[in-house]
Write a protein that binds this DNA or RNA. Sequence first.
DNA 1: GTCTATACTTCGATAGAC
DNA 2: GTCTATCGAAGTATAGAC
Lengths: 204, 204
Amino acid sequence: MTADRRIGTEDSASRAALLDAALLLMLEEGYASVTSRKVAARAGLKPQLVHYYFRTMDDLFLALFRRGAERNLERHAEALASDQPLWALWAFSNEPAGSALNIEFSALANHRKAIRAEIAAYAERFRRQQLDALEPLLASRGIDPERLPPVAALVLMTAVAQIVALEQGLGMSVGHAEAHAVVERYLTEVEGPRRERAAPDPRD
Amino acid sequence: MTADRRIGTEDSASRAALLDAALLLMLEEGYASVTSRKVAARAGLKPQLVHYYFRTMDDLFLALFRRGAERNLERHAEALASDQPLWALWAFSNEPAGSALNIEFSALANHRKAIRAEIAAYAERFRRQQLDALEPLLASRGIDPERLPPVAALVLMTAVAQIVALEQGLGMSVGHAEAHAVVERYLTEVEGPRRERAAPDPRD
DNA sequence: GTCTATACTTCGATAGAC
DNA sequence: GTCTATCGAAGTATAGAC
């Protein structure tokens, strides 16, 4: 146990480059391809630098996840604070890169204990943030919380967005448009038709 | 290219043992832990046997997937032919092992082209089978196909079952019971309350 | 027909040079 | 503070012995 091992600084350019490379690799080829050698090659650096900046591969995955999670929580809070929080949330959940990353990190968490705990904690915090914004909104709209509890609506929306993204990645398409239409009809009922905003629908 | 490489017979006991070991490993530790060495160790055999019986790891994954897919299609047809096909389908989708395997194979397909095609083809076939059984059922019940098309109901059910299973694997629980309750209220409306059957609810 | 001996590649990780 | 030289373990796969 060499606990006093040296480690790179947080604001190093090489460190950021390694994280960027790892992110791209994860999106393009899956987490199993995120090896120290491939990450380094993609960043134009030597493989040993990965271990200098992150010590272990688990540390790299955690750093990557945290960087994304922080950005996500901010963007997410913005979305929920918009004039159409439900529509904004829906657009957010349907971002292809986000869904793909979600699947990868979930699969990764399946066999890396240290990462699982962190991901689960973040995901629950995320859902809480959604719920806190949604409950008053749905209540004010007179939605019957007995028939469709806000948290259930949340899980349904997330589930559809995630599964459709996953299946599209596989090349499937049956039922996707119809499922999206059902969700969007619900959103329209609650929040009115989607008003055009800066960001286009990322599904296209 | 040694195309004339020898290969083990389909009905070999060792071959079956390797597939069983691979299945367990995949469920317990994820697809990335399904390596020739680990599979062989679990089966009490030598690593080289994996390549004797399956040539490449992709071949092993494909054989594993096909074996499961065949069994699944049979059980699935049975479920859809029961007196409460929707409830049976729901129970089927909520089998923990099935959901876990689904996620693993999806993640695997994300970066193994040869496997992706096979999985996508099977999944679409599966959904078609569901749809053929469901459409007449919902029509006979007077469900408005404009409001909730059968294929959308299908995607919603599948999505909830999958995502809840995935999140539970991570240790999450927020909203799961509520989402399940919403689906089950819908099933009750269409098909009446679930009648007790041989198999218990696998969610417990 | 079934399995073993073996090759070669890539992996994560550390110690030590600049 | 940053990077290089190097190691032992684990990965897939093949050729050849029984």
